[in-house]
Write a protein that binds this DNA or RNA. Structure first.
Length: 648
DNA sequence: GTAGGGTTAG
């Protein structure tokens, strides 16, 4: 690399022959005359050639900054290239612009080409490496710098913090020749971001004054752990609050279903920006309060794409595609996720024609759009079209990501497309997604569905973080293919896996849902029947009853189990149970319709003794059916005969 | 009056 000399005294030789211009601790005031030797005498100006003044260069630099901030890298580059002379600042501006626009490669290229690197250049590049998760390169550059300032140290400190290397971050912190507020905040953030909240707290209490960002940081640490009360205490103690403080606290209440507290804080907040409003909208949506969400949305003084998207997603979630469509039409500007949300919504509501229409019309597609439309066709039973779209997606040059693979594989499973599934498996391996849980599960399901249980087991073995779906799929796979014993074996090892005590919280979270779902219990029930294992079968039926009391298949399977083990079951009773369960399913379906209606639906409900248990269970799921706690509201059928006509 | 390091949120 070649360099232009700026301040001879501060030029240093780097070990790898890289020379950079370093600033001393108190940086010399640089002005553009360092870079441009403007003529001191009025030598003959070239006719018709405009003299390039310092202020021209500065103006260009500023224009580059603006273009970069607007995301117009190409415009910035054109300007940059047209500059007759470029200063270090011009290069630095370009590089940092590229980095903030995510063009790491271009930034790096320019960095390599740059004739003269100074301290700022290296600091920019260090943060670039860190953003790109290349901690080693960042560290190497850091080590090569002949002079570092507090910015360099802070950058490397936060690099370690963001990548979970807390102890390394602490080492850096102690080595720093000078520390400022940002350094202190850096080590605080290192603890907070890595879940070491108690250490963060101790550090925080060890120092008198903290800037508002650090208060925010500590508060968010408690919020991440869902320790809302402690977070609130921090919030209340804060000497100064900024928009982040208010937004963080409000968002957290909203996301944890505590809309009343969110609302109170929202009304008190002196600084409401688009984030605050949108957080309230999404909070209400998540809480099922669509009307409140819409009210806030309508009151919003300023909306951005994200607020619109949030509201549309709310309607899509509650299957109200008409209102979603209305809003979508009314949007002043849309982004890819607006389109994707609508496509997903139409696809999931079975309106694949509309979904396809939008897909064709949308200006830019990303891999989510493709995955949405592929899944849409697949879920609506048009597997051929789904695969056709998959092929078109490849033709379009869209790179396959995890979700696209997952989608397509589940389509293959649907139509038992074994050969294609195998081909895709090859691509999955190539892409290195094989061991991931989502793609792995989809592969597993595909092989199970195609009857290739050995291959399925091979996939199962390789999935690194098996979750409940992986276990359920393999168990169901074995059970469906008549390998009852294998299914039971896996069931046992699943139980063992779930009963192991895990230290860190994440593992615990992962293994918590190791409770088989109704489908798995169903498979086990089926397997038990084949093997005549009545006690496991009864246990399975009991579990299904607890999870899905309306699951009619369970009653049939159970009675078959009894029948095959020689226990006599009254056909009439079996029919009765089935009948009840179907009614309950209908009832449950209605109850899932939003806005508290179910109470009315259930008002005149009559249940027999057996059903009563089921109803109570549903009440538990829904949570607000207080009428069910009043037994006088029910008619109990004592004789075991339930007249379905009396049901409503 | 231009370029680099810290918190949060849709």
């Amino acid at each position: 690399m070649r360099f232009k000399q700026l301040h001879t005294s501060s030029l240093c030789l780097l070990p790898n022959r890289t020379r950079i211009h370093a600033q001393s601790a108190a940086p010399p005031r640089r002005n553009t005359s360092d870079f441009f030797r403007s003529p001191t005498t009025k030598s003959l100006p070239e006719p018709r050639t405009k003299k390039v003044t310092d202020s021209d260069i500065v103006k260009c630099n500023i224009a580059i900054t603006t273009h970069m901030r607007n995301g117009q890298c190409d415009v910035a580059l054109r300007l940059f290239n047209s500059m007759p002379r470029k200063t270090t600042v011009s290069y630095n501006t370009m590089i940092s612009g590229y980095l903030s626009n995510g063009s790491f490669k271009l930034a790096h290229q320019l960095f390599d080409e740059m004739p003269l690197k100074d301290l700022v250049t290296c600091n920019i590049m260090i943060s670039g490496y860190i953003k790109n998760k290349n901690l080693l390169a960042a560290r190497q550059l850091f080590d090569e710098m002949p002079v570092k300032d507090v910015v360099s140290w802070n950058a490397i400190l936060s690099g370690y913090a963001q990548n979970g290397l807390v102890d390394e971050a602490r080492r850096v912190f102690h080595l720093m020749p000078e520390k400022n507020e940002i350094s202190w905040n850096g080590i605080l953030a290192a603890y907070v971001q890595n879940g070491r909240i108690e250490e963060a707290r101790r550090l925080f209490e060890s120092k008198e004054r903290w800037p508002v960002v650090s208060w925010n940081c500590l508060m968010s640490g408690y919020l991440k752990k869902k320790r809302l009360e402690e977070a609130r205490q921090i919030f209340d103690r804060m000497p100064v609050r900024d928009a982040v403080s208010w937004n963080t606290m409000i968002t957290c209440y909203a996301q944890n279903g505590r809309m009343e507290e969110a609302r109170k804080l929202f009304e008190k907040s002196p600084i409401r920006d688009v984030f605050t409003w949108t957080a309230m909208v999404s909070g209400y949506i998540q809480n099922g309060q669509l009307h409140d969400a819409r009210r806030i949305f309508d009151e919003m003084p300023e909306k951005n794409v994200i607020s619109w998207n949030a509201m549309i997603a709310g309607y899509v979630q509650s299957k109200n595609m008409d209102l979603a469509g209305e809003l979508f039409e009314a949007m002043p500007c849309r982004n890819v996720s607006s389109w994707n949300t609508m496509i997903t919504g139409y696809a999931q509501s079975g309106d694949i024609a509309r979904a396809r229409n939008l897909f064709v019309k949308m200006p830019h597609r990303d891999c989510i759009s493709w995955a949405a439309i592929i899944a849409g066709f697949a879920q609506n039973g048009d597997s051929e079209e789904a695969l056709q779209m998959f092929i078109e997606m490849k033709r379009d040059g869209e790179r396959l990501n995890r979700s696209a693979f997952t989608c397509v594989l589940s389509t293959c499973a649907d139509i038992a497309a074994f050969e294609l599934g195998k081909q895709i498996h090859g691509r999955v391996v190539k892409a290195g997604y094989e061991f991931g849980c989502y793609v792995g599960n989809a592969l597993l399901a595909m092989y199970c569905r195609c009857g290739s249980i050995d291959e399925a087991y091979n996939v199962f073995k390789r999935i690194e973080d098996k979750d409940v779906v992986s276990w359920n799929t393999i168990i169901i796979g074995y059970a469906r293919h008549g390998f009852g014993e294998e299914a039971l074996k896996h069931f046992e090892s699943m139980k063992r896996a779930s009963s192991r005590a895990p230290d860190d919280a994440q593992n615990l979270m992962r293994s918590m849902p190791f409770e088989p779902d109704a489908a798995t219990w169903g498979a086990l029930l089926g397997a038990s029947r084949i093997h005549g294992n009545t006690s496991l079968g009864e246990k399975a039926a009991e579990m299904i009853f607890a999870l899905e009391p309306w699951n009619s298949g369970m009653y049939v399977l159970l009675s078959n189990l009894y029948a095959s083990s020689g226990r006599w079951v009254d056909k009439k009773k079996q029919h009765m149970l089935k009948c009840h369960s179907e009614k309950l399913a209908v009832a449950y379906g209605i109850m899932k319709i939003p806005s508290g209606r179910p109470v009315r639906v259930f008002k005149n409900l009559r249940v027999c003794e057996d059903c009563h248990t089921a109803i109570k269970h549903i009440a538990k799921i829904v949570g607000r059916l207080i009428i069910l706690r009043d037994p006088n509201r029910f008619h109990h059928f004592k004789d075991g005969v339930c007249n379905c006509g009396d049901y409503w």
